[in-house]
């Protein structure tokens, strides 16, 4: 939790990018993580490709398919975090994995790997609070953040419980459905965020559909940060050929970095003016 203290706690301008491990190859993922840090990211959410990603829309599904072609696994992905650290990555890294992959790797082995490779937390999108008791206890013992999610449909009672026990940051799902780019948010999201912030013991970040600077601007006052996944992954997909070629990779990564910087510009203008 050391890195969370330094880079996340107490902030209200968090930029949390989601990138797919091994999409389109390990080296690109490593370099992209470092680039995103340089462009203002506070946490890297490292997605692990899965054959049956229930919570994800088509953009992330396709990224998973691309990555699975490289035989990316949970284990190889955790090990790549160490390589990111060697390249200068200082911010927290969250492993975003479906539960089955974690089960097959084994929880004990996961924690040993996480320690060795300097992973800071884990997010399991198909492990709701009620099923997470065991993992929560292990994370606490190991000093890892277990990132919880809340959705607009989460009942008041569960919201209090989940938000009250949040560690690292609380992932607030902006709207119903799966991950993916959305043009705008429903107005009710603001009332929802207000409620979540009241109960949350950790910074509140909004994800699902964040793809434009205007959205970041609109959300700025209502939450502590944004999670950007599909919008970034789309750029990775459109630069796939360049990311595969070592000669053009650096340039492609810079271009994705430019997109990330433009998207989160509303945070920086504030940072500059204060």
């Amino acid at each position: 939790m050391k890195r969370f203290k330094k880079y996340v706690e107490g902030r209200n301008d968090l930029f949390i990018p989601f990138i797919m491990s091994g999409d389109p190859n390990e080296q690109a993922t490593i370099e992209l993580a470092v680039e995103l840090q340089d462009r203002g990211a506070n946490v890297i959410e490292l997605g692990i490709p899965y054959s049956d990603p229930l919570a994800d829309g088509p953009v992330i599904q396709e990224a998973a398919s691309r990555s699975l072609k490289n035989n990316t696994t949970l284990e190889s992905s955790i090990k790549s975090v160490k390589k990111m650290r060697e390249k200068g990555l200082k911010i927290p890294v969250i492993i975003f994995t479906y539960y089955n992959l974690l089960l097959q790797l084994g929880e004990d082995y996961f924690f040993a790997l996480a320690r060795e490779n300097e992973v800071d937390g884990i997010l399991v999108p198909d492990l709701p609070y009620e099923e997470g008791e065991h993992l929560r206890a292990l994370c606490e013992k190991e000093g890892l953040a277990l990132i919880s999610l809340v959705a607009p449909t989460t009942s008041e009672e569960r919201l209090q419980q989940i938000a009250g026990n949040a560690s690292g940051f609380l992932y607030c799902v902006s709207s119903l459905g799966v991950t993916g780019v959305r043009s705008e948010f429903h107005a009710s999201v603001f009332a929802f965020l207000e409620k979540v912030k009241k109960y949350s013991s950790a910074p509140v970040a909004v994800g699902f559909g964040v793809s434009k600077a205007e959205q970041v601007e609109a959300l700025k006052e209502s939450c502590d940060g944004v999670i950007v996944g599909s919008a970034l992954i789309k750029r990775v997909a459109s630069h796939e050929a360049d990311l595969q070629d070592p000669k053009t990779r650096e340039k492609a990564i810079k271009q994705i970095g430019d997109f990330a910087a433009a998207l989160t510009a509303p945070y920086r203008t504030e940072k500059l003016s204060t």
């Binding site: 539960y99 999108p125 198909d126 809340v150 959705a151 449909t153 009942s155 799966v178």
Partner: peptide, 14 residues
């Protein structure tokens, strides 16, 4: 058994 689903499904199951 159990409920290993995204948070967005939980309300519908309840």
């Amino acid at each position: 058994g159990g409920k290993f689903v995204p948070e967005t499904v939980m309300h519908a199951l309840e």
